[in-house]
């Protein structure tokens, strides 16, 4: 077993565990933040704005919003971890440099960072799901399928985030990505209102974005229904995860192993 572990691609777990140990020291405020943020969002927007809105597909706005916020929280959490935190480990603290001087190589570091960011975002998405359940937004056991889905969504945004990190000269660089990618996705991918409210060309464009597919899966699952085009949505997310992994790996190798 031990031999298998040594020669296998599982060395990335050491990197995951390193990040986990750091997180563990600050776990309480982190978990409180995971719970408080979405709670405020859903209470504020869901109850406040929901009062003046008609029901959507027979559900209250709060239920509609919960499906979106689960995904957007996951996206945010994975993005922050794979950009600001990973950049600080790569560039400021030189943690990666210390690690790749050992038998753990850069690819292990990347896999460790991706799975760690995905784990953190899973926690973040799960916290919103819990809040949603407590507020009565879901009763169906199908909603448990949201957990693997947000893990995959986290992997997607971790990969995209590390792609940006690979090119980042400093922290300010991440603002471009937030302004040009994250914020538009918040608006276009069905988090706050249905995608079909958008002009047709924008709707078509939104279908190319990963967050759209995560939301399109989450919302029906929360409502206890099997999503239409489930396979397509999952394949798009898998595609994003695979391509972003390949690209961030290539670019980080160019940056750090030259």
């Amino acid at each position: 077993m031990r031999r298998f572990f040594q020669s296998s691609p599982f060395r990335f777990i050491h990197v995951w565990r390193r990040n986990q140990l750091v997180w563990q020291k600050l776990a309480l405020p982190s978990i409180l933040g995971n719970l408080a943020d979405p709670l405020l969002y859903m209470l504020g927007l869901g109850y406040g704005l929901g009062k003046v809105l008609p029901s959507i597909n027979g559900n209250s706005y709060l239920v509609f919003l919960a499906g979106g916020v689960i995904c957007s929280s996951t996206m945010m959490s994975a993005s922050f971890e794979s950009m600001y935190s990973a950049f600080s480990r790569m560039q400021i603290q030189r943690t990666w440099e210390a690690i790749i001087n050992t038998p753990v190589d850069l690819n292990d570091v990347i896999l460790g960072e991706l799975t760690w960011a995905a784990s953190k975002s899973l926690l973040s998405g799960a916290a919103v799901l819990l809040v949603a359940a407590l507020l009565g937004a879901t009763q169906s056991p199908l909603c448990l399928l949201i957990l693997p889905l947000i893990a995959l969504t986290g992997l997607v945004f971790a990969g995209l985030g590390l792609m940006i990190t690979a090119w980042a000269p400093n922290y300010d660089f991440f603002m471009y990505y937030f302004t040009l990618a994250i914020t538009p996705m918040m608006m276009m991918c069905g988090v706050f209102f249905p995608v079909d409210q958008l002009p047709l060309p924008v709707q078509t464009f939104a279908q190319l974005l990963p967050l759209t597919h995560a939301v399109a899966m989450t919302r029906p699952l929360l409502d206890g229904q099997w999503p239409s085009h489930a396979l397509l949505h999952v394949l798009v997310l898998c595609g994003y995860a695979g391509v972003s992994y390949a690209l961030c790996r290539r670019w980080l190798q160019q940056r750090l192993l030259k």
Binding site: F5, T95, T102
Partner: peptide, 21 residues
């Protein structure tokens, strides 16, 4: 210097040792 600033001295050595399995 590339020690882990979030860790104690002992943890620095422990975590680094894990990289060597």
């Amino acid at each position: 210097d590339n020690l882990d600033p979030d860790f104690t001295l002992r943890e620095n050595l422990l975590v680094y040792g894990r990289y060597f399995d």
